[in-house]
Amino acid sequence: MSDARALRGPQKAAVLMLALGEENSARLFARMHEDEIRDLSAAMAQLGTISASVVEAVCEEFSTHLGKAGHLIGSFESTERLLLKTLPRERVAQIMEEIRGPAGRTMWEKLGNVNETVLANYLKNEYPQTVAVVLTKVKPDHAARVLSILPDGFAMEVVMRMLRMENVQKEALEGVERTLKAEFMSNLARSTRRDAHEMMAEIFNGLDRQAESRILAALEERNLEAAERIRSLMFTFEDLRRLDPAGLQVLLRSVEKERLTLGLKGAAEDMRELFYRNMTERAGKLLREDIAALGPVRLKDVDEAQAAIVATAKDLAAQGQIQLSEGKDDMLVE
């Protein structure tokens, strides 16, 4: 191949992947969908010999387009518009549904990931026969939770139809699936889009403190309101002050001793005292000695230990074992 203008999109992508080398290409492949990997691999395998001038032209075209991009805003709408330029409308609709809707490749897998209360509130307005079909297609434990939320009389109608149900005709099943896609899943996707600030708060929680401070400071200069919103949604190691004594003691029992020691090594003295006060006198004394014996430690290691302790606290809260307050108004004063 000696003319870059003759290359189609997949072929240009294949040239770029080969030019990047095995290590960089592998990292990109790891972020792709199976269909994308298959299409791109096929294009790479069929390229043949590519002249150096073509490789250079493709790389230059890529860098030129990237340089022209300027300020970018990624959204569902911009993604859909881009896909519609290269893919059939039906395929785009399928891809966008997978992006927006609950996790799962098939409609029935997606329904299995929908909150049972949300699903029951939708199904209670459908025909009992339709609900019976749906509940036979999701996992039994999920079907049981949905059934328990439906009104008693309606639930019994559904149960009777499930008992009498034989093999559902393919056309009828496809009809139910189309209705669910068009009415329920599309509305659910629009109503459950994540708040961008909440998503960024989770990302910022995963940063080390130097990167967090640097990026938040830069964001404050560009958009103070957004920075403050993200900061208010973040849950950090310092926010463990909000735990009541009982919750803090549950956390102490759940965290590995070595991780607690390292995490508190980099904490403020009043934060350490908070933990000491919720331990026995002997355990607190031993922890003080362990911290003192550590000597100098890397800030990165401290950040990782504190992040792990926060993650444990969040897990315990999700299990209902401790209560994480939602903001400063809920903090306890001793």
Rank of each mutant, 00 (worst) to 15 (best):
R27C: 09
A30N: 10
R31F: 00
R31M: 02
R31D: 12
M32S: 12
E34I: 07
D35Y: 05
D35N: 10
E36N: 09
R38T: 08
R38E: 09
D39N: 14
L40I: 11
L40T: 10
S41A: 14
S41Y: 02
A42K: 14
A45Q: 14
A45D: 12
Q46T: 14
L47Q: 03
G48N: 02
G48T: 00
G48F: 02
T49Q: 10
I50H: 08
I50L: 13
S53P: 05
S53W: 08
S53K: 09
V54G: 05
V55I: 06
A57R: 12
V58Q: 09
E61R: 03
E61A: 07
F62P: 03
H65S: 03
L66P: 07
L66A: 15
G67I: 04
K68A: 12
K68E: 13
K68Y: 05
K68T: 09
K68Q: 15
G70N: 05
L72G: 00
I73V: 13
G74W: 08
G74R: 00
G74F: 04
G74H: 09
S75R: 02
T79A: 14
R81P: 02
R81K: 10
L82D: 07
L82Q: 10
L82W: 08
L83P: 04
L83F: 05
L83A: 05
L84Y: 02
L84Q: 11
K85G: 08
K85W: 01
T86P: 01
T86M: 02
P88C: 00
R89A: 13
E90K: 01
R91L: 15
V92Y: 10
Q94D: 15
M96S: 12
E97I: 00
R100H: 03
R100F: 01
R100P: 05
G101M: 07
P102K: 06
P102Q: 11
A103L: 09
T106Y: 03
M107T: 15
M107L: 14
W108R: 07
K110F: 00
G112P: 01
G112E: 04
G112V: 02
N113E: 15
N113K: 14
V114A: 02
V114Q: 07
E116I: 01
T117I: 10
A120K: 01
N121F: 00
Y122P: 03
Y122K: 03
L123I: 09
K124S: 08
K124N: 11
E126L: 12
E126Y: 11
E126P: 12
Y127S: 13
P128R: 07
P128E: 12
Q129M: 15
T130P: 05
T130Y: 06
A132H: 07
V134Y: 05
L135I: 04
T136R: 15
T136S: 13
V138R: 03
D141C: 02
H142G: 00
H142P: 00
H142F: 11
H142E: 08
R145N: 10
R145K: 13
V146F: 04
